Amino acid sequence: MWKRLLVHLTTTFSSERIPAANTVFYSDYPETIGDFHIIDALANITKKTKASQSFDVYRQHPEYAGHNVYVEASGVDGDNYGPPGGWILDKFKFVPLIQHAGNNWPSVKWYIYMEDDAYLFLPSVLDYLSTFDWRRPHYLGSFAAKSDVVFAHGGAGFALSRPAWEKTFGHNPGMSEDYEQYTAEHCCGDQVLGHALNKYGVRFGENDGDDSEKFTWGFNPIVHWRFGFSKWNWCTSLMSWHKVHNRDVARYFAFESGWDFSKPLLHRDFFMGMIAPDLHRRA
């Protein structure tokens, strides 16, 4: 939270980019940073699941916070490694946070999910979503598959339309509790969410959530400096990067702020605007 989120507050979530009322933050520990309130996505997990070994790190949070130990490491007093197990805990957040968002923001058209080590080029994403009828059930993002489930890759970012939420979470208000055991038995929260949506007839893809599983390249599950720029993606729209560092976020925001979004932002434009100048300077 203190290592990854802060840079987003002055870039990704700056007031000129997106209204504060249109954002919500979830973590596994409640905090307040300025005017931003972070919601504990796991607050309503059942006592039985919270008592499991997977939640050891969750139960230890108050103790570490009480001793002014930040669950990070940066070489200064207090910033030491906290309890291990964050990745194990992470998978439990997806279903309850989507359920919570839908219950508390019922009038929106889209729920757009982004992780703290990702960057979404918001104008590109909104332009992409405008090509779909938000009144239809849509589940959109980057293709991923695991455990016989096709789903939207969480790190690349994804979007769920309100009707897709209504058809799934709206139909089953107990979805979060129903999926606690399944989550414990599987590896990844985005896969768990995909399974939950599939069960009620909402599938990943660009054709009203049917079985086509067609998708547009541009939601990227890796960072730009590990991405293979080539002729097949050169002229496709750029929506996101994943596994980014704070420096990347700052540079992406500066690049986005200077781009004229009356024309699409393509992978080609990003390469020529950010990577080519770096290569030139190094040469």
Score class of each variant (00 low, 15 high):
D79A: 15
L193N: 07
W105A: 14
N44I: 04
D40M: 08
F94W: 15
P123I: 02
A276G: 04
V95G: 06
W259K: 02
P106K: 00
D260Y: 02
T49K: 09
S262C: 07
P137K: 01
F261M: 09
G141C: 02
H224A: 12
V125K: 10
P173M: 00
M239Y: 15
W105G: 03
D28G: 06
Y139V: 01
P264D: 07
G157K: 11
F215M: 04
W87N: 14
G201C: 07
M274R: 11
L9P: 12
R17D: 05
F13S: 04
W134P: 05
K93Y: 00
T168K: 04
D56R: 15
R4N: 07
A164S: 06
L266M: 12
G258R: 03
A41V: 09
W241R: 00
K231C: 10
P163K: 10
F229C: 02
S257G: 06
A73E: 15
S142T: 01
V125C: 13
E115Y: 08
P62L: 10
T46K: 10
Y200H: 15
L265I: 13
V76G: 10
F121T: 06
L279Y: 10
L279W: 09
L140M: 05
F94T: 06
C187E: 12
G218F: 03
Y70C: 10
K146G: 05
E256K: 12
N220S: 10
L266S: 06
H267K: 11
R59G: 06
L89D: 07
E72N: 11
S237E: 09
D133Q: 03
P173F: 00
P173K: 00
R162V: 10
G273L: 05
K243G: 06
S14Y: 02
G174W: 03
Y70A: 15
A250E: 15
A41M: 07
P96T: 07
L89A: 00
E115L: 06
D178S: 10
V125S: 12
D210S: 05
L126E: 11
I275F: 12
I45Q: 06
N220C: 12
K214Y: 08
Y58I: 14
L9H: 09
V95L: 08
T10A: 14
F25P: 00
V108H: 15
T216V: 11
F36Q: 10
F151W: 02
A118V: 02
D190V: 05
W225Q: 13
V69L: 00
D190P: 04
A101H: 04
E180P: 04
W2P: 04
P277C: 15
V202L: 04
Q53W: 03
S147L: 07
P163W: 08
Y200T: 07
N172R: 05
M239Q: 09
R282M: 12
I112Y: 09
R135L: 14
P83F: 14
N103P: 03
V7D: 03
N246A: 14
D35M: 11
D210A: 08
D28P: 01
G155K: 02
M114H: 03
K263F: 02
A145I: 08
Y26I: 02
S54C: 09
A254W: 05
E256I: 10
S230G: 03
L140A: 06
